[in-house]
Design a protein around this nucleic acid. Structure first.
Length: 213
DNA sequence: TGCCAGGCCCTCTTTAGGGCCTT
């Protein structure tokens, strides 16, 4: 397992539905490792959830039951992913959703993780309050980030989330005149009332600096 | 057969309701 204190994992799950508590399982995981604002490593795998997925999910993701029948089981893929993830901090778009599935799938193999989560959706809602909405695809367009439009596959969505994250880091960096934006500061930003965002951005101090992301 | 969630956030709020976002 790598020591990943200075890197960040951006991840995305495709799943059979919305709730692991209702029996839904992951069917694909995609993730990229960010170091110093660059994607340096990728992870992608389909996983067989042991049950058929609905027609809605097949249409939504393009992942078919035939594709999943040839995939490795969830336990095997998640075991591999724990090695990729290491103890890095984690980012996802609407992180509460991906965290629920990550926790549920890791529980199946009696694993856990040490990193903490940040949510690109919550940060975007504060930074881009005038965006038409805060869906991942809309924010990619809003920030003029090049995209070939392969949304709803795990690796593609994780890469797009990573590029959005980098763009947000650059915007925060410009607004705060700080070259380095600490992960803890972004977590704090994501929980700050919208009206107080400007005040928080102007209050960042060098004492809050940690390793650059 | 048909249906199912949960966290965040705003407001017509706080003893609540509903929209957004994820698959």
């Amino acid at each position: 397992m790598q020591n990943c204190a200075d890197s960040l994992i951006v991840l995305d799950f495709e799943t059979t539905g919305l709730s692991p508590d209702m029996g839904d399982r992951a069917i694909e995981i995609g993730a990229v490792r960010l170091e110093k604002g660059e994607i340096v490593e990728r992870f992608q795998a389909l996983m067989n959830p042991g049950k058929r997925v609905s027609g809605f999910i097949e249409n939504y993701t393009g992942i078919t039951n035939k594709m999943l029948s040839k995939a490795a089981p969830c336990d095997e893929v998640m075991e591999q992913f724990t090695h990729f993830m290491g103890n890095s901090n984690l980012v996802a778009h609407n992180a509460s959703f991906d965290k629920r599935f990550l926790d549920a799938e890791l529980r199946q193999i009696a694993r856990s993780y040490d990193g903490s989560f940040a949510c690109s959706l919550l940060v975007a809602r504060r930074l881009y309050q005038h965006a038409p909405n805060h869906k991942l695809g809309s924010l990619i367009s809003y920030k003029n980030i090049p995209s070939l439009g392969g949304f709803h596959r795990a690796l593609f969505d994780s890469e797009m989330t990573a590029k959005l994250w980098i763009a947000m880091l650059e915007d925060i960096s410009q607004q705060t005149a700080q070259a380095e934006v600490p992960f803890a500061f972004i977590q704090k930003l994501s929980k700050t009332p919208k009206k107080a965002v400007g005040r928080l951005l102007s209050s960042i101090t060098s004492s809050e600096k940690v390793a650059p992301l």
